[in-house]
Design a protein around this nucleic acid. Sequence first.
DNA 1: ATTGCTTACCCACAATTCCCCACTAAATGC
DNA 2: GCATTTAGTGGGGAATTGTGGGTAAGCAAT
Lengths: 143, 143
Amino acid sequence: MFQGEFSNNMDDKGRVSIPAVFRDTLKSHHADERIVITRSPHTRHLVAYPMREWKRLQSRIAATPPSPQLRAFKRIVLGSAQEYTPDRQGRVLIAPAMREYANMERVIHFAGAGETFEIWDRASWDRQLEADLALARDFELGL
Amino acid sequence: MFQGEFSNNMDDKGRVSIPAVFRDTLKSHHADERIVITRSPHTRHLVAYPMREWKRLQSRIAATPPSPQLRAFKRIVLGSAQEYTPDRQGRVLIAPAMREYANMERVIHFAGAGETFEIWDRASWDRQLEADLALARDFELGL
DNA sequence: ATTGCTTACCCACAATTCCCCACTAAATGC
DNA sequence: GCATTTAGTGGGGAATTGTGGGTAAGCAAT
């Protein structure tokens, strides 16, 4: 499980450290540090999948009946997907197109999301959080 | 049961002592000092769950029908959740992202809340208390 | 082939976190 | 009241994590 939130800095070359906690999860639960990073179709941020989860997503896509929406989804998600292996310092180099898509400046925010984790520009994340707070403010769980 | 209120100081490294009473409750009622600390979606403070309660919350979330509010709730609560084990002095190191969220300065206020307990910045707590007093002024319990 | 750009790999430093010990102040027992 | 325990606080130092560059290898365009 990927849990917790962390902010790291992207350097001038476009590299960011994956939070150590997440790398540990990859190694211990997946025995494989490789991740696939792709666009989130919902809002402008990126999503990182451990290999196993990525394969799962692929088969879910394959099992979905074709439609214009699915084709759009595939272009957004599959089209941009790229495999990354962290370097010896635990960093990955985010491709320029992805940086633009997610409006990434310097401060990158990582947020655990269970089987995957999200990668945001910090300012975008802050905005999203505000919006989420407003949405969830009056929300109560059933028991 | 977590009851009572306590204020402790966060040191320069971001560590705060969990009130001894709460640690005792954890050990005696839960046989497990680990807690999960996460954001409260309602106001800007944190909530600490003993492991057992955290699992309960997870299953309540899983049993709730999907909705935009639930997704927001999950982002806020599950995404930021992190497991902590107090150090030998009974302290935990609050992650920077969480400190910011709850506007934590130096004085941290702990408030028992039954099965969980809340962690506030002291000033925020004082303000909240004022607001609560105003709200509860004319309130009477039914029987 | 040469130049210029990008990426991969490596090293070095800085910052953060973890683990331990020590001190103070408050609470407890006699 | 005085000694003893316990809670909370501060800090040192080692280990881990994050950051910044340097250099060499790969590739594309000239």
